[in-house]
Simulated scan of single mutants.
Amino acid sequence: MLFGLGSPCLRAEPVEDMLQRLAWPERPETAMLAFNEERTFPFRRFPKRYTGKMYRSPEGDLAIVYDSPRSMRLLIRGDSIQLDDGSGALQTIPSDRFDGHAISDLLRGDVQQLKANWNIEPTADGLKLSPKNDSIAASIDFIEVYFASQSVQSVRVHQRNQATRNYEFGEVVWTSGDDAATPFAN
C-alpha cells in the first residue's frame, strides 16, 4: 500500500502484489504526508527544490500543497486537476496535459489505471513503469518507484526532455476535522 502501509518489498514478490501496495487503504480519516520534490533540468546548473504536504481524502481526492519555494496547491478530484497558484483561485489544468494525469494515477494509487496505461516490471528495489500510451510517452520516458522497508520511499519521473522529477515521502499521518478539510477547500 502507498507510503508506509504495506508489506516489505522482496525481489521475488509478484508485480501484482507490489502494485497493490500502491493502493490507499479505506479509512474514514484523511491521510497526510510530507514530501520533498527536486526537479533537475539539462539546461540548469542547479535543481529546483520544493517541499510540501500531500493529503488524500477518504473519497480518494488528492490535495498537493507546496510550502516552498512558494505557496501553491494542486487539487485532483476524479479526472479533474486544478491549480491554485497562491492567489486562492482554482484553475483547471487542460486534460491534454497527460503527464499530470499520469502522475496523479500513481499518487492516487489507481492500480487499474496504472495497469491500463503502463508496462510494469519489477526492479531490485521497486517498480519501473514505461508508458503504453503514445500521449503519455510524448512527455514521460519512464517512472521508477522505490520501496524501502514497508513503504514507498521515492518516485523518480524521467521525462522525454531529459528533465527528472524526484519525490521523497515521509510517513503517513491520519487527520480529521479542519486539518483534513482545509487543503480541499475551494
Score class of each variant (00 low, 15 high):
R27Y: 08
R27G: 09
R27V: 14
P28R: 02
P28E: 04
E29G: 09
L33Y: 02
F35P: 03
F35W: 04
N36Y: 10
N36F: 10
N36G: 12
E37T: 06
E38W: 07
E38C: 10
E38K: 05
P42E: 04
P42D: 00
R44H: 09
R45G: 03
P47M: 00
P47E: 00
R49S: 10
Y50M: 14
G52P: 00
K53Q: 14
M54W: 04
M54A: 08
Y55D: 02
Y55M: 03
S57F: 01
D61R: 07
D61C: 06
D61I: 04
L62V: 01
A63V: 01
A63C: 01
V65E: 13
Y66F: 11
S68L: 08
S68I: 05
R70V: 13
S71V: 13
R73G: 03
L74W: 10
L74D: 08
I76C: 10
I76N: 05
G78V: 06
S80L: 10
I81R: 04
Q82E: 11
Q82S: 13
G86H: 05
G86V: 06
S87G: 10
S87C: 09
A89S: 11
L90K: 00
L90T: 02
Q91I: 14
Q91D: 14
Q91P: 11
T92V: 13
S95K: 09
D96P: 01
R97N: 14
G100N: 14
H101K: 05
H101M: 07
I103K: 09
D105L: 15
L106D: 00
L107Q: 02
R108C: 09
R108E: 07
Q112F: 15
A116R: 12
A116G: 13
N117L: 15
E121V: 15
E121C: 14
E121M: 15
P122T: 05
P122N: 02
P122C: 04
A124H: 07
L127T: 01
K128E: 14
K128H: 11
K132S: 06
K132E: 06
N133Q: 15
S139K: 14
F142K: 12
E144P: 04
E144T: 08
E144I: 09
V145Q: 00
Y146N: 12
Q150W: 09
S151P: 05
V155E: 07
